[in-house]
Amino acid sequence: MDLIPVLLGVTVLVFSLMYVAPGDPAAILLGIDSTPERVEILRHEMGLDRPFIVQLGLYMKNVILHFDLGISYRTKTPVINEIVSRLPTTIALTFISMAIGVLLGIATGVISAVKQYSWIDKITTIFALFGVSTPSFWLALMFVLVFAVNLRWFPVSGSYGLKYWVLPTLTLGSQAAGIVMRMTRSSMLEVIRQDYIRTARAKGQTEWVVVMKHALRNALIPIITVIGMQTGFLIGGAVLVEAVFSMPGLGKYILEGINNLDYPAVQGTVLVIAFMYIIIMLAVDIIYGFVDPRIKSQFIAKTKGA
C-alpha cells in the first residue's frame, strides 16, 4: 500500500522541520532554572546531542510502536493526551463545516449549471468566487462583527453550547461551499453536454430525473475527490477559525505550541493531522470505487487476475 511510505515520509518531514527550528528545547524546559551545565545534562538525557539520524529513528520508533509523541515542553505532560482531548473539537468543526459546505455547494452548483447564464447562475458564481477569495480569518471577524457585536445574536468565542458553533462552522462552511459549488457547476456543465443525457431526454424522461439521476450521478465522481481534498484544507482552515473564536481544538493547540516554542506539541499535532488527512483520502478512493462502475470493474479485474 502506498500509504505507509507517505506516512513515514511525513514523520521524517515533520521531525526535520522541528529539528531545524531555532531554540534549544532543553533550555526552554529548564526555564529560569537553566544554567549552561544543567542544560548540557538535560540535553544529554533527552538525547538531543545525538546525531540527527539517531534522534529521528528514536522519534519514529516511539511514534509507531508506542504512539508516544513526546512530552510537551510547556505542560510537561504527554503530547498525545493533549491531542486526544482536543481532537473531538477540531473533528466536529471540520466535519460539520464540510457538511454545510457540501450541501450548500452541491445544491447551488447544480442549480447554477442547469440554469446557466441566468441571474441565479451569475449571482451564485460571484458569491462562490468571493467565498474562495476571502481569507477565512477575515470572514470570521466579519461574522463576529455583524452577528456577535452588532446584532448580538451569537456569542463571540468559546464552545460551550450549540450557539457557539454556529459562526465558526458558517465561516468554514462558506469557504468550503464556494469551492464545492464551483467544482459541481463545472462538472455538471460538462456532464450535461454528454450524449447520454440526450438519450435520457429522448426516452421522454422528465427534466428533474434527467438532472438528478443521470447528470448528477456522473458529475459527482470528480466532486468526491474535491470534497476529500477540501476536508484537508478545512482542517488547515480550522486552525484560523479556532484562533479567532477561541475554540479549544487542535488548531489553537498548534498556535499555542508555536508561540511557546513547544516543538513536540507542534510536531505531534501536525503528524496527527497529516495522518487524518491521509485516511480521508483513502476513504475517498474507496468511495470512488463504489460510485464509478468503471473503476469498480478495474478493481475487480485486478484482484481476480492477480
Partner: peptide, 18 residues
C-alpha cells in the same frame, strides 16, 4: 420514447456509464 423514438449516431457515448 413511447410513440416516437430516436437512435443517435455514436453508441459509445449514448449510454449512461454509471
Amino acid at each position: 420514447g413511447g410513440k416516437i423514438s430516436m437512435i443517435f449516431q455514436d453508441p459509445m457515448t449514448a449510454l449512461n456509464p454509471v
